[in-house]
Amino acid sequence: MWNNPLLSPFINTASYIKNVIWLRIVFKTKTLWRRVRKGSPYREIEKYKDKYKGKRCFIIATGPSLTEEDVQKLKNEYTFGMNSVCLMTEKLGWSTTFYGVQDPYVYEKLQGKILADSKPQYFVSDLLYNNYKCPSNAIPFSLNYLNHRHTYKRLFTKFSGNVAKEVFDGYTITYSLMQIAAYMGFSKIYLIGNDCNYSKDPNKQHFANYGHADPNADFSGRRILFAYQVAREYSKSKEFEIVNSTRGGALELYRRADLDDVLAGKE
């Protein structure tokens, strides 16, 4: 029945009403309440508005190019970890300044490691905050999925200028952390481990295999690059720059800067 071409337009319309229009109404209602409610944890992020204005930070993604050696060099920098970066903590001997996670499947795999480390300031999506045990200092953000629950074929996203209100889904936690970092005032946002060329082999998608793989790996790179293009266009009129310091990879949208040169003050 679902493949019947005669029913397809009706099914598509029903999906759009449910997964775009209705979810938009629910989301806006929730975010309004979260912003006006006294003592709302969703307002905690406001204390970070422009707190690091003019400084630089490093967003550590989990692509196969990421190495413990490179991350170790960032010990004295402002860093954003995500997802399986927490698997490095014990060997590193230190934790990232901030840490973000938004995918429930990822969180279920890594929850034990995340809860065992109280050092980072955690940023978690509302879906996780409302349905899972999160670190005691976790600050939730309202993740706006836009049309993504309806279709991934029609790519679309935005870049939030006020993450206390909403963070727009850009098909990856990295995109959410870009928005949070910009809100915090960082003027240079360096990316490492951001390969953007997902392998179909689940054992080669990340620097560490932790039992989670993207089933749509062949399409993920295109989705993410689309969102990164939106971020680049947004940054042109704002006071921050996104720079790619990944070793290799397929991300060429941003200016590249060698990580060692950046840390040596040559950038």
Rank of each mutant, 00 (worst) to 15 (best):
H212F: 15
M82V: 07
T62C: 06
W2F: 13
N209P: 01
R247W: 02
I139K: 02
W22M: 12
H148E: 09
D50T: 14
T62D: 11
L6G: 10
I173T: 15
K51Q: 12
K236G: 01
Y152E: 09
K133P: 00
R247C: 02
W94K: 04
V163K: 01
K75M: 08
T31W: 10
E239A: 15
S220K: 15
N162I: 09
R34C: 09
F58P: 02
S245N: 05
I189D: 07
Y190R: 13
L191R: 08
D258Q: 02
V262D: 01
A61H: 02
F27H: 14
E233V: 03
H150G: 03
V262T: 02
S142H: 04
S187L: 03
G193L: 06
K55D: 06
Y132C: 09
E252V: 14
S125R: 05
K238E: 15
A257G: 05
F226D: 11
G221W: 09
S245V: 07
P202S: 11
P202N: 10
T151P: 04
T97H: 02
E252T: 15
F240Q: 02
V20N: 08
Y129Q: 05
P215M: 10
S95A: 05
Y228V: 02
R232Q: 12
F141Q: 11
D126I: 00
Q179V: 03
Y175T: 06
T174E: 14
A217K: 08
K53F: 10
K158A: 03
I114M: 10
Q72G: 13
N209F: 14
G112A: 07
D117Q: 06
H206D: 01
G81Y: 04
V106I: 15
R247Q: 09
T13Y: 14
Y52H: 12
M184L: 08
K204M: 11
H212M: 13
E166F: 11
V124I: 10
A116N: 12
Q102A: 15
K236P: 00
K47E: 13
A231H: 03
N131R: 06
N130W: 00
T89L: 01
D261S: 08
Y228Q: 12
R223P: 01
Y99P: 04
A208H: 05
P120E: 00
A208D: 03
W33C: 13
Y254D: 03
Y107W: 05
D201Q: 04
V85Q: 11
N244T: 02
N162W: 08
N209C: 04
N3K: 13
Y171K: 10
S136Y: 07
N216H: 12
A181Q: 08
T13L: 15
L127F: 14
K113H: 11
R247E: 08
R37F: 06
T89M: 05
V20T: 10
N130D: 13
S125P: 00
Q205W: 03
P202T: 09
A213H: 14
S118R: 12
I17T: 06
S142W: 00
S199K: 07
K47V: 11
P135W: 04
Y175G: 02
P120S: 03
R37Q: 12
G93N: 04
K28S: 12
N147D: 05
P41T: 00
S176L: 01
G161E: 14
